[in-house]
Design a protein around this nucleic acid. Structure first.
Lengths: 198, 198
DNA sequence: CAGCATACGTACCGATCGGTAACACTGTCA
DNA sequence: TGACAGTGTTACCGATCGGTACGTATGCTG
């Protein structure tokens, strides 16, 4: 590991080709959809060439899988972030995340959850994209159950699934309806549901 | 208009090419996704040829739009069907639909809502697929509001949006999680939410 | 039967898809 | 100095994409 002697020019940096490809693919896959984006578009926008892509990734499918793993990583960070302000309070933690989500999802141009979108674009259960996204979603479900247990819900698993439905519904409704979409009620509805489940 | 002298053999019929294309496209687009299906696959499985497709439809995009209009039509039928058993009772009408949906969505291989899936596959707002799906979803939102008014909810629009989130969440969660997915709680959760909103 | 429109198929188009072979260039480290 | 890893360059592959020019079969009407 070199002691980064690269003359990185502040933000804009001539980083490794693999990293630029990873970042560019992330943005394009998320914004335009995975199937809609060809490898040519990725490398040209990343300022690299195709052989560089295939030296770093076995195939487009592997690049997709890497994108989804990255996405899940960033998602988990966003999901756990409110814990800093609400330590040992899973209810407030979750509601804080939901409020932020509701705000993002009520913006025009919101693209929902990259993992959910990938599941829909790749319905075949064997496809790497489907697999990675599915595993991430199961992980989220388990995390929600854990939080609902922490809240002291009557039936934690049931409440967790209910909240998961609301979550996923917000992701996709944010895309279907623009500015004044149904996502803005997420906060009140979730609170009402939680209250009625204690 | 001929007096249909065609010797149609009961169910299996050598119908018009356009009809076979429409039906085949419906099945393939829904099951495998729109972008994943090429026109070649459609015509070959329909037992016709490409020129027949392009004589009946201007382009693949137009065929997609026709598919989504068909989908919305069938959806509305399914959605309104329970009205026969629950006339003038929007709450029982809606709950009956939700119960049937929860059952379907808890099956392995469930593919969700074709309109929702299309919205995700085609994020560009100008694309015919996005447009048709978006209009259908707005129509559904309005219908839900109407039903919530009929239920006598405190804030009908708010409850309608909450139920819409649950609906959409069920569509996508049915695909993410298989047999024992979160979709099975839709009934109890919706009832609890409605009760807490009266 | 002739005439004609409708409906369909054969064969093909250019463009793009994901992916690769072969070689030149650059900077780092020994 | 030389070996080497990483990258860029160019050109290319077969397959598939959406779409079409053009000839052929069929069936109704006179």
């Amino acid at each position: 590991m070199p002691t980064k002697p690269k003359p990185q020019s502040a933000t804009e940096a001539p980083r490794r080709a693999a990293d630029r490809i990873r970042d560019t693919a992330f943005d394009l896959f998320y914004r335009e959809g995975i199937r809609a984006v060809g490898v040519e578009e990725i490398v040209s926008q990343a300022g690299v060439t195709k052989p560089s892509l295939y030296r770093a990734f076995e195939s487009k499918d592997e690049l997709i899988a890497a994108y989804l793993r990255d996405y899940n990583h960033r998602f988990c960070e966003r999901f756990e972030a409110p814990a800093a302000e609400h330590p040992d309070d899973p209810k407030q933690h979750l509601l804080a995340y939901l409020d932020r989500l509701a705000q993002r999802a009520s913006h025009d141009g919101y693209r929902g959850c990259g993992l959910t979108n990938a599941l829909i674009e790749y319905p075949e259960p064997e496809h790497p994209a489907h697999r990675v996204a599915q595993e991430s979603k199961q992980q989220l479900r388990e995390r929600l159950r854990e939080m609902c247990r922490g809240m002291g819900a009557r039936d934690p698993d049931e409440l967790a699934d209910g909240l998961l439905l609301l979550l996923e519904g917000t992701y996709v409704s944010g895309q279907a309806f623009g500015e004044g979409g149904p996502a803005h009620v997420l906060g009140v509805i979730a609170r009402r549901l939680i209250e009625a489940s204690m």
